[in-house]
Design a protein around this nucleic acid. Sequence first.
RNA 1: GCUCCCUUCGUCUAGCGGUCCAGGACGCCGCCCUCUCAAGGCGGAAACACGAGUUCGAUUCUCGUAGGGAGCGCCA
Length: 499
Amino acid sequence: MPPLRRRLFFGPPTAPASGLPVPHAVRGHEDMRTRFAPSPTGFLHVGGARTALFCYLQARAAKGVFILRIEDTDLERSTPESVQAILDGMAWLGLDYDEGPYYQTQRFDRYAEVAGQLLDEGRAYRCWCSKERIEALREEQMKLGQKPRYDGHCRDGAEPVAGVKPVVRFRNPLDGEVVFDDLVRGRISISNTELDDLVIARPDGSPTYNFTVVVDDLDMGVNLVIRGDDHINNTPRQINIYCALGAEPPAFAHVPMILGSDGARLSKRHGAVSVLQYREDGYLPEALFNYLVRLGWSHGDQEIFSRAEMIEYFDIRDVNRKAAAFDTDKLDWLNQHYMRSLPPGEVARHLRWHFKRMGIDPDQGPPLEDLVGVQADRVKTLKEMAEQSRVFYEELGDYDEGSAKKHLRPVAEEPLRAVGNRLADLLVWDPGRLNEAVRITAEERGIGMGKIAQPLRVALTGAAVSPSIDKTLWLAGRERSLERISRALAFIAARAAAM
RNA sequence: GCUCCCUUCGUCUAGCGGUCCAGGACGCCGCCCUCUCAAGGCGGAAACACGAGUUCGAUUCUCGUAGGGAGCGCCA
C-alpha cells in the first residue's frame, strides 16, 4: 500500500486552543499543491469557475502545482457530458492544470483499502443500524431542539444483523474541539460534541464524500484546499479523519459563493450561470476571467489585470469573506474593454465563431479585424457585434419602416445621387476619402452632414443607426455601397411617384 | 431547532485606531463633443446595519441585537 503522503508548506492549520499558528508565506513555496475538484453533475457554473480560477492563480503565484480531480462517486448523477462541459469551460477560460484529471471512480480500491485500515485500527467501525432507526432518531432529536446526529449505537461493538450489510462509520473524537485557521475566514473552531460518526462507506462498499476527499488530497499531496464555503462545516470532520490517518491536514481557504444580481443564490432565472453560456452570449474569456477574479478580490484600485499581473498579485488570503453579487453591467464594461484592447486578430477569432454560429459567412465582407476596429466601442458583446454587422456580409433586406419614412424622402434624392456620383469617382476606398466625399457634398449644398449621412446610412444598412458614415461606407465596400445607393434612389422615386 | 459563517455607496471594492464630514470602479444623473447609436471628456448624487463597551479617539478592536447565508445525508 502506498504511503499517505504528507506535505506541509506552512504551519499546521490545526492548533490547540492557545498559540496562534499564523499562516505565513503562502507565496514562494515551490511545493504548493492545490486542486479543483468539481462533481460532474451539471455544467461548470460561474461560482465553480471562480473557485477553479482562485486555485489556479494561487498555484501559479506560488509556482506550485494545480490539480484537477473529478469527483464522480455519485454514479446516479454524474455524466460524461458534465465532465466534458467542465473540461471545455476550463479550456475556454484558459485554466490549464498540471495534473489530472483524476477520477474518483477509478480509485474505489484505494478508498476501500484505507477504510479497511481504519477499521483494523479501531478508528472506524461497522454499523448495522437501519435507515428507519436513524430516521426516527433524527425526528426525535429535532423535536427536542437538538441537532440531529448519530447516537453511536454501534460504536462500541454491535451484533451483526442477519441479512443486513453494515455501513462503515468513522469513530469521531467525543470531546475536545477542532480548530483551524482558514486562509480567508480566519480561525474557525467547532466542538467535537457537535460532530457525529459519519458514514465513510456504504453497505456496498462505495465511499462517501468526506472520506474520499481526505484520501485523495492526502494521496495527491494537496496541501492547500481552496473550495466553496459551503464546505466549511465539513472541514472539522475531515480534519479528524486526517488525524486518524496520522496525517497533517492541509491548509484550507473557503471562498464565498456568488449571488445573483438580486442577492439571492445564483440560479437559472438570473440568466447565464454556465461558463459556456457566457461564450455563447458573446463574452471574451479574458473579460469573464477578469470579472470573476475581481469579484471578491482586489489589488488596490486596479480593475483591469493581465493574466501575468493576476498571477503576480494574487494571494488567496486577500479574498473577501462575504458572498458577492454578480453584476452583468460590469461584466459588459469589461467585455467591451477587452474587445477594444485585445489584438484585433484575437477578437476576430472569437467573432468568427459567432458569425459561423449565426450562419453568416465571415468571408463575404470586410476583414473581421477591420470590423472589430470599428464596432468594438459600439457594442457590449461579440454576439451583438455579429448581429449588428450582418448587413456588411449579407444582402440587405427590407428597410426599417420608420427609418425609411423619415430619411428616404424626396428631399434626400438629389444629395444622395450627388454623393453617389462622387463616391463612384473615388479611386481609393478609404475612410479618409469617404469622409471627405460626404462632407464636401454637404458643404456644396450648404446643408448639414446629417442631411446626407442619415439617408445614406439608411440606404447602406437599412436603418438609422450604424457606425460613422465614412466607416459604414468603408465596411460596406465600394460595390455594395454604390448598389445600395441606387436601390435607395429607386425607392425614393417609387415613393414620390406613389404620392 | 441546533452549529458555523457573513454585514462600507444600487453593485464590486479600498480602508488593516487618528491620514475618512470614507477613496476607486460599474451603473445612474447632468453638461460637452457629435452625421445616428455608441465611445470619449468634464461634473454630480450615492455607503461605514443597529446598540453597548474598550480607548484621548472608532469604519477599523470586543460583546450583544437585527438581517442574511451555509451545514446538520448511506449528495458532493
